[in-house]
Design a protein around this nucleic acid. Structure first.
Lengths: 239, 239
DNA sequence: CAAAAATGTGTAACCTATACACAATCTAAG
DNA sequence: CTTAGATTGTGTATAGGTTACACATTTTTG
């Protein structure tokens, strides 16, 4: 019952190529927040099998790059953005998941501030899609998206990561809309504000919203300093 | 900027073999509970580079098997057990993680009842190691183990999965010891019991412990029927 | 200047988590 | 058979967090 890994890879290579017929890719679910909606950046698939279907942004992993780096590369090539929030979620490895061959893919999700990215939406076929409106995707990308969204939902209940989706200064209303968009629920305004202030994640920047057709709200920024010491343990409540 | 996945795999294969030089493996962190300790099943590595170090159980993924099936296969081959709790955790893909070549590995953890498994611990070099005593492992298996343990810790706070580590009938004391071993904390006995009964996960089987040198406790089993309908949402408390 | 729309604020009820002590049961040892 | 040792089984009071809920204020628009 000797297993393959007990031999060296060199031995394996010289013996046969059986174990080197699997390709590995990364797929990125790139989340953005715009117009009070959670959106995902998608590309028109150009595989014939999935003509005219949208798919996630991905690429094969290169033999000389770390898995994490592969997803950073995809993200940077596609959005031009560096230094973004990126997190591995799950690896999808069904034999028949890719029509063109055996490709196992590791899914990542990423949170970016959609405004920072506007510039880079060139001629290529990239578009932001509201997650509500996405019903089918190429390959198994719909279940991949669903898995990443679930992970995001559970992550934001304990960790202060949504700030990556917002501009540096934002109102409490924007913040609450974002939570509501991600979690798909309505929340109580007073309790939401109370909890956030208790968490101490926010700093009042002493400015007001501009160009809103009603009383402007105060603007806040995320208190990054608080995050060497402070830990995010409280749960976000919904009601 | 055409990315590799935009071509068909066939095209890629015929053009070059660049993307088929990565091997993919699975590694299983097999947890067991014995003598009030959480243990992991390890094997002596027989790669020269890691002579005499212990490593997780793993194997290369075969071109014609699903990723999940590969980990089931490893588990069944090694323990003889079928139908076990198995969960994917994370994929480790650093270029230099394996000294013998580029191998990306997907880590799973598994929960088994150590007693069921006794039979199959044959001549091969498998041993159960208390997690407390594991300081180093071959390859990057120590961080893999740590990642899986963390995932297990957070999972049991919301989901009734620890029963996979126990015999069919168990006492509340055993159950509490198990939680304490996994979480690495001491808990209050009265509060622990109260919470479990409130959750309704347990059925009193009207039997008592045997052969204990003190007053015997009642035995319970996990209420599986409750799990089509009931959902495990409450948190386990520690104190 | 009036209407529309959203901001900003506090309290009471409820539920959950925690801290904590003593009597009852069984074994083991003399 | 008696006693010491060990562990089971049980309830209550306090503290902390979650939820439900209403009205006055500020700004824009017509």
């Amino acid at each position: 019952m000797g297993t393959a890994l007990q031999k060296t890879i060199q031995q394996l290579r010289s013996e046969n190529r059986e174990y080197f017929q699997i390709a590995l890719s990364v797929d990125c679910v790139i989340f953005g927040f715009d117009n009070n909606e959670l959106k995902v950046l998608l590309i028109k698939s150009d595989l014939e099998e999935f003509n005219d279907q949208w798919s996630l942004l991905g690429d094969l992993v290169r033999p000389d790059e770390n898995l994490d780096n592969a997803s950073y590369r995809v993200l940077k090539d596609r959005t031009g953005l560096d230094d973004v929030y990126l997190e591995q979620v799950y690896t999808f490895g069904d034999v028949d998941r890719h029509p063109a061959g055996r490709v196992i893919t590791t899914a990542y999700y990423s949170l970016i501030n959609i405004k920072d990215h506007q510039l880079k939406l060139q001629h290529n076929e990239l578009h932001w899609h509201p997650i509500q409106e996405i019903t089918t995707l190429a390959f198994d990308h719909k279940p991949i998206l669903d898995t990443c969204l679930k992970q995001l939902q559970s992550k934001i209940e304990e960790h202060p990561i949504v700030f990556n989706l917002l501009p540096e200064k934002f109102s409490l209303r924007e913040l609450q809309s974002l939570y509501e968009a991600i979690l798909g629920v309505k929340m109580d305004r007073r309790n939401f504000r109370k909890k956030f202030f208790l968490m101490g994640w926010l700093v009042d920047v002493n400015e007001l919203e501009q160009d809103v057709p009603h009383r402007p709200g105060k603007l806040y920024r995320f208190d990054t300093s608080r995050f060497s010491s402070g830990k995010a343990t409280k749960k976000m409540a919904v009601s």
